[in-house]
Design a protein around this nucleic acid. Structure first.
Lengths: 206, 206
DNA sequence: TCATCGTTGGACTGCACGGTCCATTCGTAG
DNA sequence: CTACGAATGGACCGTGCAGTCCAACGATGA
């Protein structure tokens, strides 16, 4: 369906524009018409590149945004071996969300809005979230190996908590238009990792 | 518009049914027609009790769900003066979200979906979140007075972090259909409070 | 018994939006 | 130059949904 270079670029342009609109107005607030207008394309192109219609387009947006989100955290996300890198990672992320008027998470908003309606999209999102969490867990393990974090702590669980904290911080920050909640929860979740080096951190319970 | 007892009951019935549908299918997946069908009412009733149409209905749902959510945490939410009560509160909340197939937060989902579209609803949600946070902050202060938590900690910031952690845990748990993320982040955010009594907890940074 | 006001029923309208279809243009390989 | 498939333009259609309107019904007080 997209065999030409030109075609691929058009297709990509559609995905990105749709992503922006979804971020700003949600899936419901994004219509094929607004996407068409923003991309200077025609109705037939939308269905040419995404035969499945809006559903398929949203799915493509989901995977694209998932990749983008990870990419935006480079290079820190793959270099979480020291206190400084974690700190840079945290600051970069806060800036990513709040710095430019984003005020929402590209995949977090999709998660809430699409989860109930489209299980297929939901699983794509879960995949992205898992990849994200895994990258963080790898960082935690590096800290453990370096003796900076309690080796008995469950790196995976800690990483899950971090991603969750991020998402929740944004949920609160979004309507409030303040970065306070995001920063508050991020610091609280990171504090034990960064400050209580070698001490017991986030021991499993429940 | 609703002066009779009968009228008030009908109106209330509409609000609650709408709330359930929004929780299950989102605002976009909830139509006046499905609400009408579920409540055995007529179109004219919907607009009789909510002249502002769907927008107003959603707003009413927002405040109603906000109250309900706090009420569901009684009596613990107003008795957070001991380790045990915090623990009961946490368990009750997890059960509330996961126990019955809820898998979403009544006001959290509204926050993400309505924030961009309707600033008015957004501020209602912020109000609910703030009330929630304040109740928790009061609990933290009681713990501080009891000498169980570092008196220098910012109770308000800690409470904000808790609400954010909850919301984020749900964002992740929803598509994944697993309570793990919610429990993981909740425990991580509560750990410092409960376990590191008297030690420095969530000191301000940033 | 009548008047009034709240409540209820449901037909109807307008339109926005997802989706279909066909015609035209463009790029390229033979 | 021709032919063919990809890319594009845009008219068109069906419908689902928010919102309107008017006609009844029911209770309550005068």
């Amino acid at each position: 369906m997209a065999t030409t270079e030109k075609g691929r670029r058009t297709r990509q342009r559609i995905i990105e524009a749709t992503g922006e609109q979804i971020l700003a107005a949600g899936i419901g607030g994004t219509t094929l018409e607004t996407v068409r207008a923003a991309t200077l394309t025609s109705k037939s192109q939308l269905f040419h590149y995404f035969p499945g219609g809006k559903t398929e387009l949203v799915r493509e947006v989901a995977v694209w945004e998932g990749e983008q989100l990870l990419a935006a955290q480079e290079p820190e996300i793959h270099d979480l071996g020291s206190w400084g890198s974690w700190r840079r990672w945290r600051d970069g992320l806060v800036d990513y969300y709040l710095g430019q008027g984003r005020w929402a998470c590209p995949i977090g908003s999709l998660a809430t809005e699409a989860a109930a309606a489209d299980p297929d999209t939901a699983s794509l999102i879960t995949t992205s979230m898992t990849a994200w969490k895994d990258a963080l867990a790898a960082g935690v393990r590096r800290m453990q190996e370096a003796g900076e974090v309690d080796p008995d702590a469950d790196a995976d669980l800690l990483a899950t908590g971090m991603v969750a904290a991020l998402q929740g911080g944004i949920v609160l920050s979004q309507p409030e238009r303040s970065g306070r909640p995001l920063e508050a929860v991020l610091d609280q979740i990171l504090d034990p990792l960064l400050v209580r080096a070698t001490a017991r951190a986030g021991s499993s319970r429940a």
